[in-house]
Nucleic acid binder design. Structure first.
Lengths: 330, 330
DNA sequence: CGCAGCATATACAACGTTATAGAATCGGTG
DNA sequence: CACCGATTCTATAACGTTGTATATGCTGCG
């Protein structure tokens, strides 16, 4: 920067002012500086800028594992949106382990970022509240629905209700639900299960707890969950996987066992990952407005970082959803 | 750091020395400093450290799009490996556009990272060579196989040869190859096609150019490629998708058109993404040693960064592969 | 014509760390 | 007991930027 200043015949600070769009600079001066910058191929040192300003223009994204398609697609969209606003995204994989989540919240990772997009899976609200630090955090997902935190999420209950309503409309009466959690009704599985039950009630259909199975939110979770139902001789004519991975795993297991889809059993999922469109049969599912989630969470986080006080604290945003009817449950 | 120094009754630099494992420090002094650090909850400022040392302990990863499962899985593994060596990975999506690739090579992104893992898809070798800068770069993939650059890749030709040999051994004679490129024989599609031809030759089978189709390396590419073959009435009894996404898309299209897998047409892919195991039928493919690729590329890049001169310049590493036989081509 | 007041540019210090060079301490040796 | 080398510690100056306060022109008004 010194060289640029000398070449342009101005002071160091004037160069800095030009770079920072300081208001009171004569056009002629500004042009001289810009010319000198172009001629010398100067690029500002971001590390020094960060040290002085206290900002890194990086957003932290904490998720369990990038190799999970839903998170990969989300991360990709978040990066694109952030990039348009002049920020980068630094990803940290927690493996859904409390220890990792905590260190992402407190440690060096936090220092490197101006704000956090956080998908807590293991930590509880109080622990997070106790270690939230001073920089802004926006929660993604449902695990933390607390008035103290900003939250961007999807319409879990409404969307799940729509899925079940669709299955019921198709004449299905015994709908197996795969991927439930252990009793919590405020996390994603809980909310989605609630939506499912609401649709059953609305249609006057019976809710049979024997049709609800807990499992990992992964393909093999869905495969073994549906397998266990079949092995135990539980009858069902539809499967609602609480996410697409579960539904796809279940679909695979059903096909392996010679069950026709969708005639024998209809299958529906949740998330609309890219893969759902190309499964065989293609998977009926719900698109939870991921683009909107990406845009609004980045927007909110950056507003908080830059001190724009548009929204009150603890803002909760739910993106719109869209039912995607495909061959697995037409 | 000043506060820690005061609390421990030593100088600023001694605290710094303790943090940097400087050799000549009395155990007693070191303990005093560590106690003071613990008591005050001090954490070193990474930005200041970077400014002074010129290192950020971040590695750049340039790839086209994180939402592509192969890249997502690779990125996930690279992050885990890097984390074990005390580095973070900063991802930049290029969208396979030359402009983005170039700015990842030169711009602020480069400044933020100590070294680059680069998957160039649009830029040619000479452009890269002209803008490579002074920090280390390790190439991932085949697009740049040049003695001037370090490269970590997979055994494309050998693995593809093994796939085709397997299809031939299963009695298939007319194998459609989906995802070829426009003539280049040194990129991934070219090398894999070469391996395919070598297997044909070894078995004395004829190579029919009409069976080779260019398409995008995505699900819809594979779907439309196999669709066009069927529409044109080209006969084939097997499909070799040059990556899994193509193969899965093709599989979907074949099933939609009522063709039985694997009886009517056998399908094989390349990459062994997680999804391949859970497709219906499960996809026969080749696992290209992604774990090994992640480990060795990070190892090599960090060695270059830290100035460990173990290997000569322009090192080329090819990870081992493993054929995964599944239901689509048993 | 002098001066207030705004527009424009600058000097200097500070952000928190590490590199360099040199000072203090210590045990052992001639 | 002076001196040497090895060990241990420290003072000072960077790294490259931006914030604060201040200086310098310039315009227009009384």
């Amino acid at each position: 920067m010194n060289d640029v200043a000398r070449a342009a015949g101005v002071s160091l600070k004037t160069v800095s002012n030009v770079l920072n769009d300081y208001e009171f600079i004569r056009p002629a001066t500004k042009q001289k500086v810009l010319d000198a910058i172009a001629e010398l191929g100067y690029e500002a040192n971001l590390t020094a800028r960060s040290l002085r300003s206290g900002k890194t223009r990086m957003l932290g994204l904490v998720l369990s594992d990038l190799s999970i398609p839903y998170y990969a697609e989300l991360a990709s969209k978040l990066m694109t949106v952030a990039s348009g606003r002049g920020y980068r995204v630094l990803v940290e994989q927690s493996g859904a382990a409390a220890g990792h989540e905590l260190s992402a919240l407190q440690g060096p990772f936090r220092q490197l970022t101006d704000g956090l997009l956080f998908t807590p899976l293991a930590l509880d609200v109080e622990t997070i509240a106790a270690h939230q630090g001073s920089k802004p955090i926006v929660m993604l997902g449902e695990h933390i629905a607390d008035p103290r935190f900003d939250l961007v999420t999807m319409k879990n209950a409404e969307a799940a209700e729509a899925v079940t309503a669709h299955l019921l409309a198709g004449g299905r009466r015994r709908i197996a639900v795969l991927g439930a959690s252990a009793g919590d009704t405020t996390d994603s599985p809980g909310l989605r299960l609630n939506g499912h039950r609401k649709a059953l009630e609305a249609a006057g259909a019976e809710f049979d707890p024997a049709l609800v199975v807990q499992c990992d939110w992964r393909r093999d979770g869905g495969a073994s969950a549906v397998g266990s139902l079949l092995d135990r001789g539980v009858r069902f004519d539809a499967v609602f996987g609480l996410n697409d991975a579960i539904a796809l795993g279940a679909m695979h297991e059903l096909l392996v066992r010679g069950i026709k889809l969708p005639d024998g059993v209809a299958v529906a999922g949740f998330d609309d990952i890219d893969e759902a469109r190309f499964a065989s049969p293609s998977l009926t599912t719900v698109a939870p407005g991921m683009k909107e989630i990406a845009e609004r969470s980045i927007q909110l986080l950056i507003d908080r970082i830059e001190g724009i006080e548009a929204a009150p604290d603890g803002l909760h945003i739910a993106a719109g959803f869209e039912l995607k009817l495909r061959d697995s449950a037409p």
